[in-house]
Design a protein around this nucleic acid. Structure first.
Length: 270
DNA sequence: GCCGTCACCTGTGGGC
DNA sequence: TGCCCACAGGTGACGG
């Protein structure tokens, strides 16, 4: 599932392939992917050039001549570039026919992803992006502290709350708790100021390292599309044994999410 | 306002 | 072999 580093990898890779291309037409094969009026979405994008691709948290923002649209990959969304005329895959849901005889195809097995037309000049200040907190790289301590120190929710649940810090998903939330040597069930309000500062720093490190790995391993598209396939250096998520002490990694459910931790190394609950 | 639960989806894997 | 069911998870809506 794409989190901030994967989405950043997709953004960088896509830019090499589709920048400055004109969208000749848009084919929507599964309407619910598009939030709002599908006809309007198609008409607005037709004959527009792709000027830039931005990203905020897990959202991609395609900047066009006069419009912009956002794309959230959710669980399994990915983009493929195919020569126009290549038979569609069963899960190709939105097709952008480009001027260089290629298609940009949005493929999503579970149909969870969403696209939406947004105001090109103001998208960061309007929903849904305006509801997001800051990315760990830019996070202000006071804002994060304010939201965490008064919550009785488990810290791992708070890491997944995109209005506190944006860009962290289930995998990196598990990794961040491990790196902090902290039990993922620790209540937010039990964390000291020092630990919350450390939480921001560790989140930043974990995402930065993942972006670097993505940047070095993904140079072009593979058969499966662009989705940032580089989850190779994980310490706890879906792991069997702890990389530090060798103990068995335990899996529990926290607020409905699979949560992995080392019961020996992550004992501290503050 | 805070928090828990559910719906949205389909592929996968376990049990029978 | 084939069928059924639980499960995976990001987000938003809804209800207590």
């Amino acid at each position: 599932m794409p989190e901030l580093p994967e989405v950043e990898t997709v953004r960088r890779t896509l830019k090499n392939f589709i920048l400055h291309q004109e969208i000749e037409s848009v084919e929507v094969r599964y309407q619910k992917i598009i939030e709002g009026d599908v006809d309007l979405f198609q008409k607005a994008l037709t004959h527009q050039h792709i000027v830039d691709i931005d990203r905020y948290g897990k959202y991609l923002i395609f900047i066009l001549d006069d419009y912009a649209f956002i794309s959230h990959l959710r669980m399994e969304g990915k983009y493929n570039i195919k020569p126009t005329g290549t038979p569609y895959n069963k899960h190709d849901h939105v097709i952008f026919h480009l001027s260089n005889d290629t298609d940009l195809r949005y493929n999503d097995t579970r149909k969870f992803g969403r696209m939406m037309l947004v105001d090109k000049d103001n998208y960061r200040h309007l929903p849904p992006l305006s509801k997001l907190g800051q990315e760990p790289q830019d996070a202000k301590f006071e804002d994060v502290y304010e939201k965490i120190h008064r919550s009785s929710l488990p810290i791992k649940t708070l890491l997944l709350d995109q209005s506190i810090l944006t860009g962290i998903g289930n995998i990196y939330a598990n990794e961040i708790c491990f790196r902090m040597r902290m039990d993922p069930r620790t209540r937010g309000k039990r964390l000291s100021k020092k630990r919350i500062q450390e939480l921001i720093d560790v989140s930043r490190q974990v995402l930065d390292e993942a972006i670097k790995q993505g940047g070095t391993t993904i140079h072009s598209f593979d058969a499966n599309g662009i989705h940032g396939l580089f989850q190779v250096e994980l310490d706890v998520h879906e792991q069997k044994t702890c990389s530090i002490c060798g103990s068995d990694i335990k899996k529990i459910t926290l607020n409905g999410r699979g949560t992995y931790y080392c019961p020996v190394c992550q004992k501290r609950r503050y």
